[in-house]
Amino acid sequence: KLETFPLDVLVNTAAEDLPRGVDPSRKENHLSDEDFKAVFGMTRSAFANLPLWKQQNLKKEKGLF
């Protein structure tokens, strides 16, 4: 399991300012399950079932792209 970080560490943070080991294209993977659901309004599995373009739009909207 990946290390999780608080939302404010990941949202609207440039790649070079992210904690070590965080993939800038997969910031959402480093949210706790609770934060993930609070941000996206759905579970990880529901998010994973969305088309890629919709996932990317949601990530942009939430500052996690």
Rank of each mutant, 00 (worst) to 15 (best):
E3C: 08
E3V: 14
T4M: 09
T4S: 08
T4G: 05
F5E: 14
F5S: 12
P6K: 12
L7V: 08
L7E: 11
L7F: 07
D8G: 07
V9P: 07
V9Y: 12
V9S: 08
V11E: 05
T13R: 07
T13P: 05
T13S: 13
T13E: 09
A14Q: 15
A15P: 15
A15H: 15
A15S: 12
E16I: 05
E16M: 05
E16H: 09
L18I: 08
L18G: 04
P19L: 03
G21A: 11
G21K: 10
V22Q: 06
V22W: 03
D23V: 04
P24M: 05
S25P: 03
R26P: 06
R26S: 12
K27C: 12
K27T: 14
H30T: 03
H30Y: 14
L31D: 00
S32H: 10
S32K: 08
E34H: 08
E34V: 13
D35Y: 00
F36W: 05
F36E: 02
K37I: 08
K37T: 09
A38N: 07
V39G: 01
V39Q: 07
V39R: 03
F40N: 01
G41L: 07
G41E: 10
M42Y: 10
T43S: 14
T43C: 10
T43A: 14
T43I: 02
T43V: 05
R44V: 02
R44N: 03
S45D: 13
S45W: 06
A46L: 13
F47N: 00
F47R: 00
A48D: 14
N49C: 14
L50P: 00
L50V: 02
P51G: 03
P51A: 04
L52R: 08
L52P: 13
W53T: 14
K54I: 09
Q55G: 00
Q56A: 12
Q56T: 10
N57W: 09
N57S: 13
L58M: 15
L58P: 00
K59T: 03
K59G: 00
K59L: 05
K60L: 11
K60M: 08
E61Q: 10
K62T: 10
K62H: 10
K62Q: 10
G63D: 08
L64Q: 04
F65C: 15
F65A: 15
